[in-house]
Amino acid sequence: MKMFNVKYLYPFNSLHSTSTIPSGFTLMEVLISLAILSIALVAVLKANVSIEDTNQAAEEEIMANLLAQNIMAHIQTFGIKKYDQFPMEIEKKGLEYDIQVDATDIENLWRLKVTIYKLDATVNQLEAFFWSDD
């Protein structure tokens, strides 16, 4: 009867294998993969913060634009003499406004300029001409 070598009969069985192929990951491979993963995560978080800042600025600009349009509509509706009696409370939103009404060379044609501020920085500015008999 002929004898067979066990490692040739079971080449994939680790109990009978004499090869030194490592199984699993080394500590260095795990550390490098964690470093790469953390760099990618930091980039994603920075992008998220940037998007939040952009959304906040867009919201402030939209609010300022709506406020300026509201002020213009109020002045055009109730007349030029009541422009300093604008009833809207905007201090809660941290916004301030400045209204400038100037006469033009044409009779009864007025130049209206509304500027919206937040912390001494201009958020929005609208300018329009309107006709008024006041």
Rank of each mutant, 00 (worst) to 15 (best):
R111K: 10
I21T: 10
N13E: 03
L15C: 14
D102G: 11
S19A: 13
M1C: 10
A73E: 15
K118S: 04
F130D: 02
K81W: 13
A128H: 07
V6F: 00
A47K: 08
I21Q: 12
K46N: 13
V42Q: 09
N55S: 08
I90D: 05
T18V: 02
F4I: 02
Y83S: 11
A121F: 15
I106E: 12
I75T: 04
I71A: 12
T20K: 14
N13C: 03
S33A: 11
I39P: 05
Q125G: 05
Y8G: 00
I51W: 10
A73C: 12
S19T: 12
A103D: 09
T26Y: 08
S50Y: 05
L27S: 02
F4V: 04
D84S: 15
S23L: 14
D98N: 11
P11T: 01
E60G: 04
V123H: 05
Q125M: 07
I90G: 06
I51M: 11
H74M: 08
G24S: 06
S14H: 15
I36T: 02
Y10P: 02
F130S: 03
E96G: 14
N65P: 09
L34K: 01
S33P: 07
N55C: 04
Q85N: 14
T54L: 12
K7Y: 00
I99L: 03
D102T: 11
T18M: 01
L27R: 04
Y97C: 04
K81L: 13
I36R: 00
E127M: 09
